[in-house]
Write a protein that binds this DNA or RNA. Structure first.
Length: 618
DNA sequence: GAGGTATAG
DNA sequence: TTTTCTATACCTC
């Protein structure tokens, strides 16, 4: 696991390097959301009220950070940078500033190339096909910090830990972790030199442990957790168990506020026979060790204790694993588009429809900007996803000005957080809850031709205001502390060529069929009945270029490009957009051909692609 | 799909 | 026991 040090503050510092030596804090509303390490040295910390921060450190530089655009962009950039080092694409972002990387394959490869006779002069290979790319390192030693600290065993064996050298030579796991530590060091240096960001890294055998171990030395550092299992006959705990045991139960990732409360109530409640009610409310620290060793503790006990509404099934097993240092969850694969996009703002008081509409306009505007940024790409061959090297591709002699959708969200959602109603008698406040209403995404917003302002106005008056009325039917009496607008439930457009290998038209066809199923149901759901019968033949004639015109060779070199010559994008795009705009007339969903990238109504896709397939065969 | 809960940074 | 502005996974209906 890798995380960028004081991320928001680092982004600001990179934009304005003169700030680097000063105490710097990033403000959202009335709090400091994060601050650099100089500010932390002076007593500032995350989520601190600005008043307090300014009192403690009057010369702190405060930067407003409610607009997350620059942080999001920096995060994306760094993520892309790190992702390029992965061979498996198992690179998962957690928030804006943390990245899990599963480096198993690259470590495996380098383990095999290791010369056991001369570990000191090893070369770490970063590319399979180019043996010159990589860096020199000493595979006989760990790089960076170790846990437990290396000094605890250096006395007995200067080059390796007791566990790493047995009768049969170095422990392979130990060796793997050493390689990982050098890779971690390399990545941190690259990130700093090429991108200007310092980071801290935690290295271990699963997500849980790599995250926890990364916290041991910060910032600008790395730590590797050495499993160091003692002999099985011994009663002593492994390093892993000792390490996890020493954490507070609530500090374990995956065990949040609610779970920690329940576990505390259970364990402390049994220990303290007096006044269980008081203890149950307690927030006093409770170590993982005390939970693990508490009487009757087992996966089943935990399932009974923790299972229930709001929690996933198998939570008992999951938590049991966590408190034993076991975490089987895979590092997620890099995704092309996010699952959802949401924009929100919080308010001191928002209690009338005029202000609400103003806010909705602002939020909707940001949302549409973001949809264009994150859900579309340049409609251009050189978009970075094409697996062919540049030279092999056709040089596009046209200017690419248009964009195409990578995914269409199916759902639009509005959520609000009403301010807890003040009951006349007491301070009775129901839990801090958000409520939401959602509707199918209005297709108008997928138009790329209209001015954003037009789409925003339509979205607000035709969708968001009605949603708001559903949430808050009363004309007054409400007071909101937060409003959020989100799009979710993405349906990816099947234009993905990037499976690493050659273009398998059959495979793409299969994928496209799956997506089509999706659109077919949608057609059934929202398309009005047709006025007259449209035959399959009609559709083919409308959207398929004549077969004999395209030479076979042309297709093989550049499928998409070749076809675009027959069906120029601008024309296809125009037609599709026209379809969007003619609301009542003949509305149809637009889609993009998986083979050539041409845009056309989704009903025409299947026939159009069959056309490609027949070309490929014959 | 719709609405909610929990967790994370 | 929540501040901010997000994002994800998974639950029930």
């Amino acid at each position: 696991m890798q995380d960028y040090d004081a991320f928001y503050a680092s982004v600001i510092e990179n934009e304005n390097p003169s700030l680097k030596s000063l105490p710097l804090a990033v403000q959202q509303k009335h709090i400091i959301v994060t601050c650099n390490y100089e500010a932390r040295r002076r007593g500032l910390h995350k989520l601190q009220p600005i008043r307090e921060a300014k009192r403690k450190c009057p010369d702190v530089v405060v930067v407003l950070g409610e607009d997350l655009t620059r942080f999001r962009n920096a995060s994306k950039d760094l993520y892309g940078f790190l992702r390029a080092f992965s061979w498996s694409d198992k690179v998962e972002r957690l928030g804006f500033d943390e990245v899990f990387m599963d480096m198993t394959t690259i470590i495996d490869y380098n383990m095999e190339l290791l010369n056991c006779k001369d570990l000191n002069h090893s070369f770490f290979h970063l590319k399979k096909n180019d043996p010159t790319v990589g860096f020199s390192y000493d595979a006989a030693v760990m790089c960076g910090n170790e846990y437990p600290a290396s000094s605890t065993y250096l006395l007995s064996s200067p080059l390796s830990t007791p566990a790493s050298v047995g009768l049969e030579g170095p422990d392979p796991l130990m060796l793997r972790l050493r390689l990982a530590s050098h890779l971690g060091q390399y990545l941190r240096h690259q990130l700093e030199e090429q991108k200007g960001y310092t980071s801290t890294v935690g290295i271990s055998i699963n997500k849980l442990l790599s995250k926890l171990i990364g916290n041991v030395h910060k910032p600008k550092a790395q730590t590797t957790l050495i499993p160091l299992y003692v002999s099985p006959s011994s009663n002593k705990d492994s390093n892993v168990t000792q390490f996890v045991d020493s954490h507070d139960i609530g500090k374990i990732p995956g065990i949040g506020y609610k779970l920690a409360q329940k576990i505390r109530a259970h364990v402390l409640g049994r220990l303290d026979i007096f006044d269980a009610g008081f203890v149950a409310e307690s927030t006093e620290p409770l170590l993982v060790r005390d939970v693990r060793l508490s009487p009757g503790m087992s996966p089943h006990t935990l399932e009974d204790l923790l299972g229930g509404p709001g929690f996933p099934r198998g939570i008992g097993q999951k938590v049991w694993g966590l408190i034993n240092g076991v975490d089987e969850t895979e590092v997620g694969r890099a995704r092309k588009v996010p699952r959802q996009i949401s924009i929100e703002d919080s308010y001191i008081r928002l209690d009338n429809i005029v202000d609400v509409k103003k806010e909705l306009l602002m939020l909707a505007d940001s949302l549409i900007r973001r949809m264009h940024l994150d859900l579309t790409e340049a409609d251009d061959d050189d978009d970075g996803r094409c697996p062919e090297p540049k030279e092999k591709r056709f040089q596009a002699d046209r200017v690419s000005v248009s964009r195409r959708w990578l995914a269409h969200p199916r759902t639009l959602r509005l959520t609000t957080r009403p301010r807890p109603p003040v009951n006349p008698d007491g301070i009775r406040t129901r839990t801090f809850n958000r409520i939401s209403r959602s509707i199918p995404m209005p297709r108008l917003v997928f138009t790329l031709k209209k001015k954003r302002e037009v789409l925003v106005d339509a979205l607000v008056s035709e969708s968001l205001i009605p949603l708001f009325r559903k949430l808050h039917p009363e004309k007054s009496g409400w007071n909101l502390s937060l409003v959020n607008v989100a799009v979710a439930n993405m349906v990816e457009t099947a234009t993905d060529y990037g499976d690493g290998g050659g273009r398998d038209i059959g495979k793409m066809f299969k994928r496209q069929e799956n997506v089509l199923k999706d659109f077919k149901t949608e057609e059934k759901d929202i398309m009005p009945p047709r006025k007259g019968p449209i035959t399959t033949r009609d559709q083919i004639d409308m959207w398929c270029p004549p077969t004999p015109e395209i030479p076979q060779k042309h297709i093989e070199i550049g499928l998409r490009h070749g076809s675009e010559e027959e069906l120029p994008h601008t024309q296809a795009s125009l037609s599709a957009d026209d379809a969007w705009e003619s609301e009542g007339e003949e509305p149809c969903l637009s889609d993009t051909c998986a083979v050539c990238g041409a845009v056309m109504p989704s009903f025409a896709i299947a026939a159009h692609e069959r056309f490609h397939l027949s070309l490929n065969k014959g």
